[in-house]
């Protein structure tokens, strides 16, 4: 069966003046629907580069990134923007919330950007529902500066899924959080992936977080080392 998301012989070379550095040396990877794939590996091994290429935030030097069978590596900026806006969700190390919007408005903006066909009242109801999912409905009128790091990250996750994306990309989403909050955030991502049937690609260097993944991909020096299925502690 055709996978929803396939990375095929992807290479990435950065050129710094005379110096050429091949950061990805031919990556093949398929992501499964409704499952979390975790990318691990030493710092500098190319995890973030791979994730951002997959998410259409930078082009690959060679190879294909196939989303629903279409190569986004060959699309123009506007086509990629449309896919990012309506089909992808992003969570990064920092929440990157819009400082002048309330929690509720952050999510309303995302619905707006993804050209949601819902009516205004339906949008509000949907926002409320998702805020409940991440446990932030009681702070919906708060502005980001008044939220804690963990709360901000939960809002960022809500923003990443409010428009029902098919693929969720997360680059070290727990790196700025303490251990307890990290587990909460990972449990939340796992729960959402399962209940909403999202295809999730997550980068982490935290061994503890691997228990929440369905697949673990180890990267080293621009190549995939091994592909394994972990013991899942998170599962009941």
């Amino acid at each position: 069966m055709m996978s929803i998301f396939t990375i095929d012989k992807v290479k990435k070379t950065f050129t710094n003046g005379e110096v050429k550095e091949e950061v990805l040396k031919g990556i093949n990877l398929s992501l499964a629907e409704g499952e979390i794939t975790a990318l691990v590996g030493a710092s500098g091994s190319g995890k973030s580069t791979l994730l951002t290429i997959a998410a259409g935030l930078q082009p690959a030097s060679d190879g294909q990134v196939l989303f629903e069978g279409k190569n986004i590596n060959a699309m123009n900026q506007e086509q990629i923007r449309q896919i990012r806006a309506s089909e992808f969700g992003f969570v990064f190390q920092f929440a990157h919330l819009v400082p002048f919007l309330t929690v509720e408005e952050q999510l309303m903006l995302m619905l707006d950007v993804s050209d949601s066909t819902l009516k205004k009242t339906e949008q509000k109801r949907e926002v409320n529902r998702v805020l409940q999912l991440v446990g932030m409905d009681h702070r919906k009128n708060a502005y980001p500066p008044s939220l804690s790091g963990g709360e901000k990250q939960r809002v960022a996750i809500a923003r990443a899924i409010i428009h029902q994306p098919k693929v969720l990309f997360a680059d070290e989403p727990t790196a700025s959080l303490d251990s307890k909050r990290s587990k909460d955030v990972m449990a939340l991502i796992r729960e959402l992936t399962k209940t909403l049937n999202i295809t999730t690609l997550i980068v982490t260097h935290d061994e503890e977080m691997l228990s929440y993944a369905d697949h673990i991909i180890k990267m080293s020096d621009g190549l995939i080392l091994q592909n394994e299925n972990p013991e899942l502690v998170g599962r009941a």
Binding site: R81, A85, F90, H96, V98, R159
Partner: peptide, 13 residues
């Protein structure tokens, strides 16, 4: 700049 980058990342034109 940072804000604009994020808004672009989530898909604002």
């Amino acid at each position: 700049i940072g804000l604009y980058g994020i808004l672009k990342a989530i898909g604002l034109k």
